[in-house]
Amino acid sequence: MGANLGDTRATLEAATADIAALPQVHAPERSPFYRSAPVNAAGPDFLNAVLKIETTLEAEDLLRALHAIENRHGRNRPYLNAPRTLDLDLLLHGDEMRETAFLTLPHPRMHLRAFVLQPLYDLAPDLRLPQGSVKALLAACSDQALERLTDDVPPAPQAS
């Protein structure tokens, strides 16, 4: 999840709550927030995090729900890589692998982006992606500036 327009922190906190409130979503756990420069775009810095959930929703249904949350938070798509109030990507859905016009799993560029890999590592340090371990992939992105918000304490995982 990421945002670079408006009150980014409040938006990401609200989006976390919105996702946790979805039917068939349980045990949400959010990484710390990280600030990063836009990739292949201009605009303000992004605030990013990763949210780990348990769900019985199918991947497409979950992505549709994420898009609806983006829309409720004022997401516009005027052009590719435009600044945004909220960006919610589905990175992984269990071990599922697929490529359709609507959804590619695992996310096709996450292994190249420190702003995804670092918060992912915070939640799942032993995770392996098709391209290698999250730890090794993160080391390969060491030239990408990333700043952890020091005043952020992610909420404790909720049992539900």
Results as ranks from 00 to 15, higher is better:
Pro106Asp: 06
Arg109Met: 12
Ser142Lys: 07
Asn81Gly: 00
Leu137Met: 06
Ala15Tyr: 02
Thr104Pro: 03
Ala82Val: 01
Arg77Asp: 08
Pro44Asn: 15
Asn40Cys: 11
Ile19Arg: 02
Glu13Pro: 00
Phe46Asp: 04
Leu129Phe: 11
Arg64Ser: 14
Leu90Trp: 11
Arg113Gly: 09
Arg148Leu: 14
Pro78Arg: 03
Val39Gly: 02
Val116Gly: 04
Pro106Ile: 07
Pro125Thr: 10
Thr11His: 01
Ile19Leu: 10
Glu29Ser: 02
His26Val: 12
Asp18Leu: 06
Leu129Ser: 08
Gly43Leu: 10
Val134Thr: 00
Val50Lys: 00
Pro83Glu: 00
Ala114Thr: 08
Met97Lys: 14
Leu105Gly: 02
Leu112Asn: 10
Arg30Val: 03
Arg30Leu: 11
Leu80Trp: 12
Arg72Leu: 11
Ala14Gly: 02
Pro32Tyr: 08
Ala17Ile: 01
Glu54Ala: 15
Arg64Ile: 10
Asp87Gly: 12
Ala101Pro: 10
Glu70Trp: 01
Ser31Leu: 08
Cys141Ala: 11
Leu47Met: 08
Ala42Gly: 13
Leu137Lys: 01
Thr16His: 06
Pro155His: 06
Ala10Phe: 02
Glu54Trp: 09
Phe102Gly: 07
Ala49Gly: 07
Pro106Lys: 05
Asp143Arg: 04
Asp143Pro: 02
Tyr34Arg: 06
Leu51Met: 07
Val39Ile: 14
Leu146Ser: 12
Leu112Thr: 13
Gln144Cys: 13
Thr16Lys: 00
Asp143Glu: 13
Met110Arg: 10
His73Met: 05
Ala68Lys: 07
Glu54Phe: 11
Val50Thr: 01
Glu60His: 12
Leu47His: 05
Asp152Leu: 04
Asp122Ile: 02
Gln144Phe: 14
Ala21Cys: 13
Ala140Gly: 14
Gly94Pro: 02
Val116Glu: 03
Arg64Tyr: 11
Val25Met: 11
Val116Arg: 01
Pro28Cys: 12
Gly43Trp: 07
Phe33Asn: 00
Tyr34Asn: 10
Asp89Cys: 09
Glu99Gly: 08
Leu91Met: 11
Arg148Ile: 13
Pro78Phe: 00
Asn40Phe: 07
Asp18Ala: 15
His67Leu: 15
Ser36Asp: 08
His107Gly: 06
Pro44Ala: 15
Ala68Phe: 06
Asp61Thr: 14
Pro83Arg: 04
Phe33Ser: 01
His107Trp: 11
Ala114Cys: 12
Asp18Tyr: 04
Leu91Ile: 10
Asp45Gln: 13
Pro38Phe: 08
Phe115Asp: 00
Phe33Leu: 15
His73Ile: 03
Arg35Thr: 14
His26Phe: 14
His67Tyr: 14
Thr85Gly: 11
Pro44Trp: 03
Ile69Pro: 00
Pro38His: 08
Ala15Leu: 08
Ala101His: 09
Ala37Trp: 09
Asn48Pro: 12
Pro28His: 03
Asp61Trp: 07
Arg128Asp: 12
Leu92Glu: 05
Pro106Thr: 07
Ile69Leu: 07
Leu138Asp: 03
Ser36Leu: 06
Leu123Thr: 05
Val39Tyr: 10
Ala17Thr: 09
Pro78Lys: 03
